[in-house]
Design a protein around this nucleic acid. Sequence first.
DNA 1: TTGTAGGCGTTATCAA
DNA 2: TTGATAACGCCTACAA
Lengths: 354, 354
Amino acid sequence: MGNQVKKATLRNVAESANVSVTVASRVVGNYGYVSLEKKKRVLKIAKELGYTPNILARSLKTYTSFCIGVVIADITTSFFNLLVRGADDVARQNGYHLIICNSDESPKKEKDHLEELSSRKVDGIILCPTEKNIHQLKKITRAGMPLVLVDRKLKEIDAVSITVDNSLGAMEGVNHLIQHGYRRIGLIKGLPGISALEERFLGYKQALHAAGIPLDQELIRYGEFNAVASRKAALELLQLKKPPDAFFIASEAMIVGTILAIRERNLRIPEDIGIVGFDDPLWAPLLDPPLTTIRQPSYSVGTIAAQKLISQLRGSGDAGNSRKENIVLRPELVIRASCGEGATGARAAGRRRT
Amino acid sequence: MGNQVKKATLRNVAESANVSVTVASRVVGNYGYVSLEKKKRVLKIAKELGYTPNILARSLKTYTSFCIGVVIADITTSFFNLLVRGADDVARQNGYHLIICNSDESPKKEKDHLEELSSRKVDGIILCPTEKNIHQLKKITRAGMPLVLVDRKLKEIDAVSITVDNSLGAMEGVNHLIQHGYRRIGLIKGLPGISALEERFLGYKQALHAAGIPLDQELIRYGEFNAVASRKAALELLQLKKPPDAFFIASEAMIVGTILAIRERNLRIPEDIGIVGFDDPLWAPLLDPPLTTIRQPSYSVGTIAAQKLISQLRGSGDAGNSRKENIVLRPELVIRASCGEGATGARAAGRRRT
DNA sequence: TTGTAGGCGTTATCAA
DNA sequence: TTGATAACGCCTACAA
C-alpha cells in the first residue's frame, strides 16, 4: 500500500537521476554521447533501484530476442544433450539463449514447438527434424526464420545442415565385424523413416555387399530407440532357427536393451556373439568386454550448428538466403574388445574365422 | 521492394478483415463477445496472413512470459537431464517454456544466469544452487521472483525446495557394504561445500559409526564429479598401504572413473573390492557384475519442482510468500551384485566376512 | 456486440 | 550533448 517501491524501469531511473529517458537509455546501453557527470548519476541510481533492462521490451523494439530455439528428439539421450551443450556453449558466448524443445520424434509435437518458437520471436532455430513437417518448415523459412538442421538433412528445405556420415560409420562398424569373422549380423534399427537411421542401414548393406554376404531381412528389427523395445527385438533375433552371430546396434539406448538380452540368454561376448554399437557412451569402456563403437562428434555438431546459425543471424542484413550447405562430420570407429580384439583378444582367439 | 507482404500483426489482420483490433484480439485470444460472422472472417484472414501472436508484445503488456528459467549444474549429466525433462514435461503441459542454463558449479556463471533470467522476465526460476550466491538470491526473492530450489536447500533462503534424502541414501548404501563384510570403505566425494554431497558424507559417517568402524580420513577423496579426477582419486586410494576393500561413490560420472581405476589394477568385483554408487544410470545393470546403486528419483524432482512453481505462479495474486517448504524424496537402494549378492552371489561366497 | 485510446518498457528519430 | 516524441504489437478499460 503506502511505501510501494518504485518499479525499476528506465523511466523511473531517469526521473530519479533527473535526466531524460534517452540519456538513461544511452548510459545503460552504453552508446551515444552522454556527459560523464550524468552517466555517473544514472549508474548510481540504476544500481540503487536495482534496475535491470526489460529484455522483452527491448526485443519488441529491436526485433531481436537473442534467443535461439532448439528442437531435438529428447534431451535425455546422450547424443542430444551433448549436442545441446555444444550449441549452448557457443550461443552463450555470443549473447544468445536457448529454448529447448523435445519432440520425442512426434511430428505433431514438433509442429507445435515450431509454431511456439515463431510466436516467441526467436532469432533462429536449430532443428533435428522428424522429417514429417516439410510444409511447415517451408513456411518458416519462407517467413525468413533462419534455420539450421542437425543430424538429419531435408533435401526439400533450403537450410544448412550439420550431420554425421552415418553410412560411412555404419559401414566401418559392420565391416569391422565381418573382418573378425562374423557373418550373420543382426541389425537393431531405430524407427522407420528417419534419414540418419536409413543411412546407417545403407552402410550396413554396403558392408555386407562388399563382403559378398547376402542381405537377410530376417535379421533386421526395430528397437525404437529405447531399451525395452530393443531388448525384445534382440531376444526375437536370438530365437531364430538361424540366429545372428553378431549385432550391429544403431543407437545408445538400444545397446542397453540388446546387451540385456544377450545376458539373459547367457551368451558370451565376443565368443558367442560380436557387438558394435553406434554411439559411444561414457560407459562403453566399462562393459566386459569393453564395447567397440562408432563415436559421433555430437558436441561438435552442436557447436557448429550454433556457429552457422549465429553467423547467419549476423549477416542477415545483406545476403538473401539460398544457403543450402551440408556439413558432414566423420564418425570414428573406436575399437575395443566386443568383437574379439584389444584387451580380451586372447579370449577371442578360439572363435571360428569362417 | 514492391510487393512486400504485409506483416502478420494483429492490426493488419484487423484491417484486412475490416474489424477493430479489439475484435481481432478477441477472436485470436478466444474471449469476450464477437459475432460469429466477424469471427470467421478474422480467422480466415489470420490464416491467410500466417498470423501468429507476438508473445513478446503480449508478455510486455500482461507481465507474464510463460517462461521458466532453470539453472542446473550441467545438462549433460543424467541426474540433471532427467530432472529437466521432468520439469519440461509438466511445464509444457501448463503452457510454460523452459530456458535452461548450465552453471557448471560456478557461482559466477550462476549469478550471470540469474541476472539474465530476471531481465528476461521469466515468471519463475528453478535452481540447483551452487550455494555461494545467497545475497543475489535474496535480492531476487525479495523482488518477488518465485523460486524453487532443487537437489540442494538453502536455509537462508525463503523458498520451497525439492531434495532427495541424501544422508539416508548414503547410509543405506554404506550399510549394505558393511553388511557384506566390507570394512575399509573408500569414499569418492564430489566437490567440497555442496550440501547434497555433504549430506551423503554424513550418511557415510553415520553408517560407519553405527557399525563401530572408525572414520579414516585417508579413505576420503574428491572426484570432482567427473571421470578423470575420480579415476585418479581411486587410483590413489588403491595405492595406500592399507587400501580400501570397497568404494562408495557419490555420483554417476565418478562411478565411471572409479571402475576404470579398478579395471586398471585388475581387481575383481566384488571379491577384491565392493562397490556402491550413488545414482542409478541406465547402464548399471550392464556391468559385470551389475552395479548396486542408490537410485534417485530425479525425474520426479523435476516434475514436482515445476508443479510447485506453477501453482505458486497461479496463486501469486493472493497469498504473500514466506513459503518455505522442504519436500524430500526417498532414494532407493537397488541391490545388484557389486557387493556380492544377487546374480553372482555364489562368486562372492568365498570372500572374508571379517 | 463493437471500437477508441492509452500504455507496457525500450529504442530510434529528429530537433534543439 | 540532450530531450521530446513516436513507434514496436498487444491488451484492456471504457465508452458507444
